[in-house]
Each structure stands twice: as structure tokens, then as C-alpha cells.
């Protein structure tokens, strides 16, 4: 009951914030240097033709009028047509989004699970060799520079050993062949995903490990852990039932926020691995002043961030009985 009220209130807030973000983004892109037309047209075009093109895109109108049009279209579910591709922005995003979600949610969930698991173990052996090596390993991986690691991975496993494809998400010959079934396609994508997934995993699991470790160390100092020990419970039970659920709470927040930001944060990875996702499209749209595409991509990210924050709050209420809204 109370939680429904809370979610409703937060949704209203989210809608207001969303339109503030929309307005700011709209203005920012128009104020940024460079315009889409100079990138599109070839230099031999007459000024009249260029002006005609600008008028066609609606860019000769005053900004406030453009803004009104954008809002009007937005409410009818029309996000505009990409200047560059000439197709509806909506369909481009719809096409790219699942690829990004596939790669990043897999990598975040995988690194969170591994990080939580080993963070728990490291904290349990605090100050011993296990802890030292795990912490050092986590720190080392966490501080690696992502594009560098990505290139090294491609160089070793893709180029030298040749286990995995160099880039991309699918092998065209398999997908164009009508005889290949679901499993073949599935394995093909999985095969392409190994290197980007491993790269993202190596970069991210360390932060979860360190977070879980320090959170566990704080939790282990709590009185209820002493109670659990005094009850004569086995160490394993104390660790898994009494300490870990409490210690995992901050990690859950972190996972939620990472999931949200992965949509944008993936630009580097997607570019290096030529992964056809939203992050790569975003970089491309911004550098080409493809206003409708860039704006829609950013709005998507904003929405995901806002919604996942809400989701984390709700999840928290489920995990921690003390939290009431």
C-alpha cells in the first residue's frame, strides 16, 4: 500500500525530471558548434540547394518553434527521422538497444555475482594471503584502461591465438544462410560476445569485490554477528545467512546504477569491438550532429537511469525490512 504510493509519487517526479532533461538536451545540441548540413552535403552544392535542405530539415525555424514541434511529435510517439540514416530514429534505437542490453546486463550481472562471491571470501580471510591476492587482483583489474585491455584481448585471443572473432556481433554467412537454426545463431552471438564480455568483466568485477569486501568487514563488526557466533552457529552459516545479506545492500545499489549507466558507458567498448549497440550509435550521432538520433539516445539513457534508481529503491525495500516508504 505504502510502497504503491511511494512509486506513484516517484513516477510523477520522474516525469517532471524527464522533461527538464529533454529541454536542456534540446538546447545543448542546438548550441553545440557545427551543424548537420555541412557534414551531409558535398561542397559543390549551391548555397540555394543547401538552404533548401536546411529548410527541409526544419532547421531554419527559430529554436523555440523547433522545440514546440519536437514536443508535439514526442507526444505522438514520433522521435523524428535521423538526418544521417534517413529512417525513423525509433527503429534505429529499437534495432540497437537489444544488442547493448545483451552485452552489458550480462557483464554487469556476471561481475556482480563473481565480485560479491569473492568479496565475501576475501573479507572472511581478512589479512591472510587469500585476501591479499584477491584484493590486489581486484585493484589491478579495476585500474586497467578499458580500451587498452580491449585491444590487448583482441590482439591475444582474436589475432594471435584466433579463438574468437576480432569484432562484430554476428557472422553474416551464418545469419544469411536460411538453413541455420536458432542454436547455431545463438552460439555465433555467444562466440562474438566472449571477448567484449571478458573485457567488461575484468574491468568491473573488482569494484564489486572491493565494495562487498569492505561492506562485509563493516557488517562483521556488528553485534548481531557476535550473537550469531554466541549461538554456536557454524561459520559458514554466520557468513552466508547473517553477514552477507546485510553486506550486499550497498552492492545492490551499485549494480542498479551500473545497469543504468551501461547504456552510455558502453560507447568505448562498443566502438573497439564494433558491437552494434546504442553507445556506438550515440558517439556517431553526436559527432555528426544528427540531432534527432542523439537526442533520442540521450533521452533513453536518462529514462533508464531514472527508472533504475526507482527500481533499486523498490528492491531495497524488499531486501531490507527496515526500509519503509
Amino acid at each position: 500500500m505504502e510502497i504503491r504510493k511511494f512509486v506513484f509519487k516517484r513516477l510523477i517526479e520522474i516525469i517532471v525530471i524527464f522533461f527538464v532533461i529533454l529541454t536542456v538536451l534540446f538546447l545543448l545540441f542546438r548550441l553545440a558548434p557545427g551543424d548537420p548540413v555541412t557534414r551531409m552535403v558535398d561542397p559543390t552544392m549551391t548555397p540555394e540547394d543547401a538552404a533548401h535542405l536546411i529548410a527541409q530539415l526544419g532547421l531554419d525555424q527559430p529554436i523555440w518553434l523547433q522545440y514546440i514541434y519536437y514536443l508535439k511529435n514526442f507526444f505522438t510517439g514520433n522521435f523524428g527521422i535521423s538526418f544521417h540514416y534517413g529512417v525513423a530514429v525509433f527503429s534505429i534505437i529499437l534495432n540497437r538497444l537489444p544488442n547493448t542490453i545483451l552485452l552489458f546486463s550480462t557483464s554487469i550481472l556476471l561481475s556482480a555475482f563473481v565480485g560479491i562471491f569473492f568479496g565475501k571470501i576475501a573479507s572472511w580471510h581478512k589479512g591472510k594471503k587469500t585476501d591479499t591476492w584477491m584484493t590486489l587482483g581486484a585493484l589491478f583489474c579495476h585500474t586497467l584502461f578499458l580500451p587498452w585491455l580491449a585491444l590487448i584481448m583482441i590482439w591475444i585471443f582474436g589475432f594471435n591465438i584466433g579463438w574468437f572473432p576480432l569484432n562484430g556481433m554476428i557472422s553474416p554467412e551464418i545469419w544469411l544462410d536460411s538453413s541455420s537454426g536458432f542454436w547455431l545463431k545463438f552460439l555465433d552471438v555467444a562466440h562474438h560476445m566472449v571477448l567484449p564480455l571478458a573485457t567488461l568483466f575484468l574491468i568491473h568485477f573488482g569494484s564489486y569485490l572491493l565494495l562487498m569486501r569492505s561492506s562485509m568487514l563493516d557488517t562483521l563488526k556488528e553485534d548481531y554477528i557476535l550473537t550469531a557466533r554466541a549461538k554456536g552457529l557454524e561459520e559458514k552459516v554466520i557468513r552466508n545467512r547473517h553477514a552477507a545479506p546485510n553486506a550486499a545492500l550497498p552492492v545492490v545499489t551499485s549494480v542498479g546504477i551500473s545497469l543504468a549507466f551501461s547504456l552510455s558507458g558502453g560507447a568505448l567498448t562498443e566502438t573497439v569491438f564494433s558491437w552494434p549497440g546504442i553507445g556506438r550509435e550515440l558517439v556517431f550521432a553526436v559527432s555528426n550532429s544528427d540531432y534527432p538520433l542523439a537526442l533520442a539516445s540521450f533521452l533513453l539513457i536518462a529514462t533508464v537511469v531514472l527508472i533504475s534508481n526507482l527500481a533499486v529503491d523498490v528492491l531495497y525495500a524488499y531486501l531490507d525490512p527496515r526500509i519503509k516508504y
Binding site: E222, D223, Y224, L226, T227, A228, A230, R241, H242, P245, N246, L319, D320, P321, R322
Partner: peptide
């Protein structure tokens, strides 16, 4: 057995 201080924390908050 032991009875701990009446501090808030002798019982685990999530169980």
C-alpha cells in the same frame, strides 16, 4: 548462553 546489551544491534535486522 548469553544475553547481550540491549543495544539495537544484537538481533539481525534482516531476519
Amino acid at each position: 548462553a548469553m544475553i547481550f546489551q540491549a543495544a539495537m544491534n544484537a538481533l539481525n535486522p534482516v531476519h
